[in-house]
Design a protein around this nucleic acid. Structure first.
Lengths: 214, 214
DNA sequence: GTCTATACAAGGATAGAC
DNA sequence: GTCTATCCTTGTATAGAC
């Protein structure tokens, strides 16, 4: 097996790639895919423009590398739900984790939101396969919980849409929320307050009793 | 009836402006402000590129005309909330109207969402003034309802964030929802089903009794 | 009033020097 | 491996013909 064309991921290469990916993430959030220039990314990364093409070949591949980075980070954190779990505990944990992700990595959520708004040109396949499969499996579990009388009869699909929309809103609409409430940034206890509010509203709507009082 | 087309001064202008605005709305949704070219708008509007500059001077002014169009359409439909109104009735009406707007005019919601995600470069002023004032007035009303024991003690600001996020989600994430549920478009009764679901969840969370059963 | 032709800047990509 | 110089395309905007 030939190894001549394979190189060890060098230290400089690793560092530069990361700098580019991080700069690209910020620029793609601010101007969208088409609106972002390789020049602006290279400026932000403080590396020559040709460097970007050297590491990522072209703009489309750089963008997809950013998307992949995001999905990977999400998969690392979001654990799975099973039928035997307790509905209250499971939903609360899921909501809390989503809120934490939204506040901690808003750019990830923002890039995905922009993708979907623009018609999901790059993540269509992911929606049709992975995400659809994931959602169908989870709605099955919710349906079983309802059959077993563990929670009230709410539409499981729309329940997930509600959890996604309310949690991701704190990332995607960060600017609106901070501007409107006259704040510069989220504070440490915002994750807790938001999680409690959402857990209260969503669990109560499901006929469950939230762990924490408002 | 006269066969010769006598255009009142401004009639062609009116028609062309509308064609351009509609085409621009679609293009701005698909590619964002920076990512959209005057060429692609003129192609979609089936008018020469110079025409766009003739009517709207430049890209920025055309974009702002699109934004203004959207805000005007929203203001026409969204009525006001007052303290003497019944909480259940008022919240249900507000949620229903928002769902209807989201399903009927998804592009309006999408352009606004993109604006906010990208840091609200063009609507910052609107957020700081009009919207902040609107929200403060409405949260006051919710607080009064809570004091009067008409509903349970939920944070009024986050309540509005929840209504906005859940309703607008059906516009902004239209592509994701349709793809994931394997549908081509929303159906006539989707507005009703979604409204009932959201009214049930949100009103129950507020300690109110929704008008319709699930 | 409307559109063709064009000026000039910015963007993506690459060849080739170092 | 890295970056300068450059090519070609696309983009915004306008002058001037019709």
């Amino acid at each position: 097996m030939s190894v001549t064309k394979k190189y060890k991921p060098g230290k400089i290469r690793e560092q530069n790639s990361q700098k580019i990916l991080q700069a690209a993430e910020v620029e793609f959030v601010k101007h969208g895919y088409k609106g972002t220039s390789m020049q602006s990314i290279s400026d932000a990364a403080e590396l020559p423009k040709a460097n970007l093409h050297y590491y990522f070949t072209n703009k489309a591949k750089l963008y997809n590398a950013v998307l992949e980075d995001i999905v990977q980070r999400w998969n690392e954190v979001l654990t799975d739900i099973t039928e035997d779990d307790d509905p209250t505990e499971t939903l609360e944990f899921y909501i809390r984790t989503k809120v934490e992700l939204a506040i901690r990595y808003p750019n990830a959520s923002k890039i995905f939101a922009t993708e979907i708004i623009q018609g999901a040109p790059n993540v269509n396949e992911y929606l049709r396969t992975d995400l659809r499969t994931w959602l169908r499996a989870k709605t099955k579990i919710i349906e079983r919980w309802i059959e077993q009388g563990k929670m009230s009869k709410v539409d499981p699909e729309h329940l997930f849409f509600m959890i996604w929309s309310t949690t991701q809103h704190y990332a995607d609409f960060e600017t609106q929320i901070l501007t409107i409430t006259n704040k510069l940034e989220y504070e440490a206890d915002d994750i807790e307050r938001i999680s409690r509010f959402l857990c209260h509203m969503i669990l109560t709507g499901c006929g469950l009793t939230p762990t924490h009082k408002l």
